[in-house]
Computed example of a mutant assay.
Amino acid sequence: MKRRNTPTKQAVLDLFESCSTALNQEQIECQLHEKMDRATIYRILNNFCKDGMMHKIVADDGINYFAMCKNCCDHLKHDHFHFRCTECNQLICLEEKININLPEGFVLETCNCVITGICKTCQK
């Protein structure tokens, strides 16, 4: 669906285009220079997900993170692992594809795989 672009949507989009990691609501609010209410940000992010521009990751900490679909070939399936650093809290998309063999008759709709650990930067 073609949606009207607004300065608010563009600000969120610009933030994600300049970022190499997934972001959660708090991180987005801190990095946006203009004030936006939480509901507006979530509505924008959820619409970006519906439109295949982003995907949502529910991390092990129960927080929703959003990532720009930069390397996703199929924007409807984001079948890759995510890594969340427990030190700096960054969440990144990994290139490794997930292969899941479901029983006959089962249909995969979404998959959410988050690996936790300490990133290379935090190990130094």
Rank of each mutant, 00 (worst) to 15 (best):
S18Y: 10
I92R: 13
C30M: 08
E104R: 09
S18Q: 11
T6C: 02
H78R: 13
H75Y: 10
L108C: 05
Y42P: 05
N112C: 07
I115H: 14
K97L: 11
K97I: 09
Q123V: 11
V107Q: 13
I41S: 06
V107M: 08
V58M: 13
I41V: 12
L76R: 08
D79M: 10
M36N: 01
I63P: 00
P7Q: 01
M68G: 03
G62Q: 05
T116I: 11
I100T: 11
Q10S: 05
Q27L: 09
N89P: 00
H55A: 03
A67Y: 04
T6D: 06
I118L: 03
D61H: 13
I115M: 11
H80F: 12
D51K: 13
F83P: 08
F106Y: 15
H78P: 00
D51H: 09
Y42H: 14
H33E: 14
P103Y: 13
I57V: 08
P7G: 00
T21P: 00
L91D: 01
K70W: 02
E34A: 06
E34L: 08
Y65M: 02
C111M: 12
L13T: 02
T40K: 11
K56S: 15
N24G: 04
G117M: 07
A11H: 00
T8W: 04
I41T: 07
N5W: 10
N71C: 04
R4F: 12
I98W: 11
N24V: 02
N112R: 11
H78W: 15
L15D: 03
N89C: 08
F66I: 12
A59N: 14
G117Q: 07
E87T: 06
M36C: 02
K35D: 05
C19L: 06
E95W: 15
N101D: 15
K9Q: 06
K56M: 15
T8H: 07
L32Y: 01
Q90L: 12
